[in-house]
């Protein structure tokens, strides 16, 4: 190792330093053992560094500093906690006021019914939907489309069929569109449904134009007539 390299490594060689690896430290120590100039240079550097370090640390710390710090930290901690509590309280208050002032949702059955009607009131769409179930199916005769609120497939006595639901005031009419041959005895089915569901009226409608198609009508809480318009049908 040259003296130049040794003096460069001396910059990094000091107690507690981690910049030099074991090989570099031992090489530097070997050089210092052999070279009196560098050894003296290193000793003097250490002495100067120690001298500066001693002077650097020679600072008189105020006697009451620790107590003052503890007192200040306690105040800050209390203030910080109070500030956070105040913020949370304020946020809670704002939420409470907002909750009280926010208009409460109003349940409007008529609006909901009207909305439902709007969604399914497309009579052509319902006719198409029925035709997709069976080309013979058509909209229930004489029933006024404006009272229609829902179309769905439901299971009746083990048979899945399209069912239209009509609502007028407090009355509800459910019309299942089926074929004659889907049930062994349609009259028995009608009687059974009347007994099971406590319906006010149960009617089986047939149309001359659609032979084999049957409309099984159940009316809850009222007669069937309010749901009609003036189309011709034959009722049995």
């Amino acid at each position: 190792m040259t003296c130049g390299m040794a003096r460069l490594l001396m910059i990094f060689a000091r107690p507690g330093a981690t910049e030099l690896d074991g090989g570099e430290i031992s090489a530097l120590e070997s050089h210092l053992a052999e070279c009196p100039n560098c050894r003296e240079h290193s000793r003097q550097g250490r002495r100067d560094d120690d001298s500066i370090a001693r002077a650097m640390r020679a600072v008189v710390v105020p006697v009451r500093l620790q107590a003052e710090l503890a007192s200040q930290l306690a105040r800050t901690s209390r203030f910080s906690l109070m500030r956070k509590i105040a913020i949370l309280t304020l946020a809670g208050g704002v939420l409470l006021v907002g909750w009280r002032l926010w208009p409460a949702p109003v349940f409007d059955a008529d609006a909901i019914a009207a909305s439902a009607y709007d969604e399914v009131a497309n009579r052509d769409g319902v006719v198409e939907w029925l035709a997709r179930q069976n080309p013979l199916f058509s909209f229930p005769p004489r029933f006024n489309g404006k009272f229609l609120v829902a179309c769905e497939r439901r299971t009746i006595h083990g048979v899945t069929a399209p069912v239209l639901t009509f609502v007028r005031r407090d009355s509800l009419a459910r019309v299942a569109v089926v074929t004659e041959n889907q049930f062994r005895n349609l009259a028995e089915v009608a009687t059974g449904r009347a007994a099971e569901n406590s319906v006010s009226t149960i009617v089986v409608l047939r149309m001359a134009e659609s032979p084999g198609v049957v409309y099984l009508v159940e009316v809850l809480n009222g007669p069937i007539e309010p749901f009609y318009n003036d189309e011709e049908i034959s009722a049995t």
Binding site: R7, L8, I11, G45, R47, S51, A55, M56, V59
Partner: peptide, 19 residues
């Protein structure tokens, strides 16, 4: 620039105020 960290003469004891 790489320094020459140690001068020829030691600086001796240092007064903390001077430092």
């Amino acid at each position: 620039d790489w320094p020459e960290p140690v001068a020829d003469e030691p600086i001796g004891e240092i007064d903390p105020c001077d430092l």
